[in-house]
Amino acid sequence: MTLLRGLRALLDGLYTAGGVLAALCMLGILVMIVLQMLARWTGEVFPGAPEYAGYCMAAASFLAFAHALTRGAHIRVGILVQALGPRALWLAEVWCFGVGAALAWYLTYYAARAASWSWRLNDISQGQDATPLWIPQLAMVAGAGLFALALTDNLAHLLVTGRHRIRAEAIQDRPDR
């Protein structure tokens, strides 16, 4: 039981950590763009700024996938499913998480393969940053893996307890009043 609770805390912590890292990458985009502008205005050079901003963009997206999932931010079309009874709804949810997890693991496998190809082929950024591409692609692998893990986690939860753990917050109204 303690083990399970520990695992639960670990997984939830991982998703949140991914989200926080992603947010830092988002901040990174802003910093890269501002530095590039500052460099241009002052006659300095910041080689590779657009590429770095691009890597931050990819990392911000992938690392946040799992976090966005657990907070119900990823969109689904729920019209048909809503009409189902509890048993059928459960089956539909199992199908969704099953398909989702399968696709996300597929994505993870090929992301890892792409990063290893980048390493083996010595694939280097064509911009002025000349970064070996496997380095920024690691964020893609980690993010995709975390996403697959989160989907699998929810699938397991659904199978065992009958409910998934996604809690969507309706974000329409102002949080502070």
Partner: peptide
Amino acid sequence: GTGVWVGL
């Protein structure tokens, strides 16, 4: 239609 997330 079965509710799979749009991106996936």
